[in-house]
Design a protein around this nucleic acid. Structure first.
Lengths: 249, 249
DNA sequence: CACAAACCAGCAAAAAACAGCAAAAACAAT
DNA sequence: ATTGTTTTTGCTGTTTTTTGCTGGTTTGTG
């Protein structure tokens, strides 16, 4: 078995099991532990896996691990939150999605603000409930445990009945050509309904997600009214969106 | 299980439950308490969690903690919780009210239990979401900020559509003559609907609320199937209820 | 204040990693 | 074919990590 073969074998097994044991590998490939160790070292140096004492973990594992970070890019998201809050006026009905950006916004709502927030995101609900002057409407249905938002037909129908003044959308990907895109079918349907139910729509995203896309489209760029990032509106990166008619804050 | 895996496991569980117990972890991961302690120490040093006597808390929780008041009579409520959990069987549909007793129950659900919980209580929702094998259905509507439960016609209607196996009701007052009573009009309507939608109903209450009453009636005593308090079923105080045909646990 | 639970420091055994060396294999050039 | 060079591989002895354990200390709780 050649070195390349061995390393491919290791990566393949990592794809399947998300982890490999050194002892296991050297048996299955019939080489010494040192050889396996060296292979793992090389693959780790090349950034193809994560070496740990006794074996290795797949990179996918590290992503899961990263997902459990409190809120990443919190600094940027705080800036975004402030800009978004500027759009909310007294006694508005505001429809919000889930996501950490929205959550950050929810936590920074000024105490004197009185408005009604409608959402299916449980973490957002929690934040709104902590606010002294915000009325809260929960749209209910089956709850997706991963994203902690309600999904399903009842949610969609409920949102269709709403006439909100503003929709605040945390977006995962935005792109000139493909518009707003996402990767979860339920979430896409939800966001479509939210946009349709609101007079105006603002998209909140960190600049790192600008000009990226995901497999499923939520809407074209011309359906959104505001784009909010942590960058200054005059930033080079944002000019295409300004030209396309979006109000960039 | 590698060290990294363990630590990821811990962080993940913290994300879900907001707290972990040392004893719990060392069982679930099948390592000694010292190892868990060392893992917690390392994660604490890295600022990923807050170590406390006997376990650890998530960072997110420390923020929330400010607003979350302690549960009074927690000891009694833990006993009640255990008894209530005994009623829940695999794959049941369980309808629960709000209240701290229910919340305590929600937090003590055994990890292997798989069932579907339906509720309009936001704190209960949070607890159910933290559980690995529980499906959650939120019944949505306007949220009462004080009690943190959804109230209103939509909630009632939604509950009427449900056919649950079991209804777990945290009650504020129970009395031989007046049955279950409460003081909030919305809550009374909600509880009525919940009882009607369930095959069986269990009332959870601390003994201090036995033989007390409030202005509005939820239902007569004969509508409930189980009464759960922290007392032994043979306790003097409970005998009237036993005689009235309620199964006292 | 007493008692159980949890913590800590330090130890020891086992496992894994490492550094360095030498045999074997592969390759290139004569 | 042969020689010299490089790469690969396994081995040896040593060092580091990891982990559970022991016994004493601290902490929380009734």
């Amino acid at each position: 078995m050649f070195k390349k073969e061995r390393q491919a074998f290791i990566l393949n097994r990592l794809d399947l099991h998300n982890k490999v044991l050194n002892t296991n590998l050297c048996q299955d490939m019939n080489v010494s532990e040192d050889t396996v160790r060296r292979d793992l070292q090389e693959l780790a140096d090349a950034g193809r896996l994560i070496k740990v004492h006794g074996g290795a973990l797949s990179l996918a594992f590290s992503n899961i691990h990263a997902g459990s970070k409190a809120i990443y890019s919190q600094r940027q998201k705080a800036i975004i939150a402030q800009k978004a809050i500027g759009l909310i006026q007294k006694n508005m009905y505001v429809l919000t999605s889930g996501g950490t950006t929205i959550l950050e916004m929810a936590r920074h709502l000024p105490p004197h603000l009185s408005a009604t927030f409608i959402t299916g995101s449980i973490p957002a609900l929690n934040a709104y409930l902590a606010h002294p002057n915000i009325d809260v409407i929960a749209v209910g249905d089956r709850v997706n445990k991963e994203s902690k938002i309600t999904v399903g037909a009842v949610t969609i129908n409920k949102i269709k009945e709403v006439n909100a003044d503003l929709c605040l959308l945390g977006v995962n990907a935005i792109d000139m050509r493909r518009g707003i895109t996402d990767n979860d079918c339920d979430v896409v349907e939800l966001k479509k309904a939210m946009i349709a139910a609101s007079a105006r729509t603002a998209c909140l995203t960190i600049a790192g997600k600008l000009n990226s896309f995901e497999p499923l489209q939520v809407c074209e760029l011309d359906r959104i009214d505001y784009l909010i990032t942590e960058l200054d509106p005059t930033d080079q990166l944002l000019q295409p969106y300004v030209k396309a008619g979006v109000t960039v804050l």
